[in-house]
């Protein structure tokens, strides 16, 4: 069979694979949108927006009045869960934006300037990368004290090294392109080359890595809050609720099931969106569809 004939024969399979991938992406986006809308609704819809008031007895099982049941103080778990989703998403998103800015700047500087700048950036990244992420998060929490600031700093420190490495690798490829050499010959300054030529051509990598960083951020926030070093009461987050659910696992399993389930859904959806973006923005690195 010739290459063309083989390609044509494989085409329906590829088409089917593309359709499946589109369906997965759509499902992941719908789940993410539902979680975001639900967390926003939790802040504005009367009856859903108060996770601090006692509305019933302790550990009431899910019912029509309280769809997810109540917690150890008789508060609506649905209200607390929606607030928790909002807190976790907001905290993770802010941390990932910080990570993206820092990692993009460091990665592009390391790739374009090379030499000792590259060595310093990469070795610091290696040192941070060598720490198990939860250990690094606990060290940060010990330094900053438990709370949102510690969670934010921990997520940034954990996600920056990997993203910097990926951005630097992508930027190094771009820096070798002829159009960058031509710009240097033309006297275009280094900051302009980095912004105009490198940044614009690594933006796809940044977006993809940001989605992976977002799933890591949700996990780290959950882990820190679970251990008591992240978001503090009376606020709510998915990790904090999971911690509480763990305490009352036999009495009120719905607390752990709802918070853990929301966390798994969020991480799964974000990761699938990241995979899908990678397939679209970096087709050469995508898995073979045949």
């Amino acid at each position: 069979m010739t290459g063309v004939a083989a390609g044509l024969a494989a085409a329906p399979g590829r088409l089917q694979a593309l359709r499946t991938k589109d369906a997965v992406l759509t499902a992941a986006l719908v789940v993410l949108a539902l979680l975001v809308v639900a967390s926003l609704a939790g802040r504005v819809v009367p009856g859903l927006n108060d996770g601090t008031t006692t509305v019933g007895g302790r550990f009431e099982a899910p019912s029509l009045a309280h769809p997810l049941g109540t917690d150890s103080l008789g508060r609506s778990l649905l209200a607390r869960l929606l607030e928790g989703i909002g807190t976790t998403f907001l905290l993770s998103a802010v941390a990932v934006v910080c990570t993206a800015v820092i990692a993009t700047a460091l990665g592009i500087l390391a790739a374009y300037l090379g030499g000792w700048v590259r060595e310093v950036v990469m070795r610091i990244g290696d040192v941070l990368y060598a720490f198990p992420s939860i250990l690094l998060a606990l060290l940060v929490a010990a330094a900053f004290g438990a709370g949102i600031t510690a969670s934010l700093a921990a997520i940034v420190l954990i996600t920056v090294p990997l993203m910097t490495r990926q951005v630097a690798a992508a930027a190094a490829q771009v820096a070798r392109r002829d159009f960058v050499t031509s710009a240097r010959i033309s006297g275009v300054s280094a900051p302009v080359i980095m912004a105009r030529h490198l940044l614009t051509n690594v933006s796809g990598t940044v977006v993809i890595q940001a989605t992976y960083a977002l799933s890591v951020a949700i996990l780290v926030e959950g882990g820190l809050s679970f251990l008591g070093y992240g978001v503090q009461l009376p606020a709510s987050s998915l990790g904090l609720l999971a911690s509480e659910g763990n305490l009352y696992l036999l009495t009120a399993p719905w607390i752990l099931i709802s918070s853990g389930g929301a966390m798994v859904l969020a991480i799964l959806a974000v990761t699938l969106v990241g995979d899908s973006l990678r397939d679209r923005l970096e087709p050469r690195q995508a898995v073979d569809l045949t």
Binding site: D178, F179, T181, S182, I185, S186, G187, R196, T200, N201
Partner: peptide, 20 residues
């Protein structure tokens, strides 16, 4: 002497920034 000298390089595909 940047404006005094220029270059036309090998790969037509990579001679120009694809985003510009």
């Amino acid at each position: 002497m940047a404006g005094e000298m220029q270059a036309v390089l090998q790969h037509p595909m990579w001679a120009l920034n694809p985003r510009m």
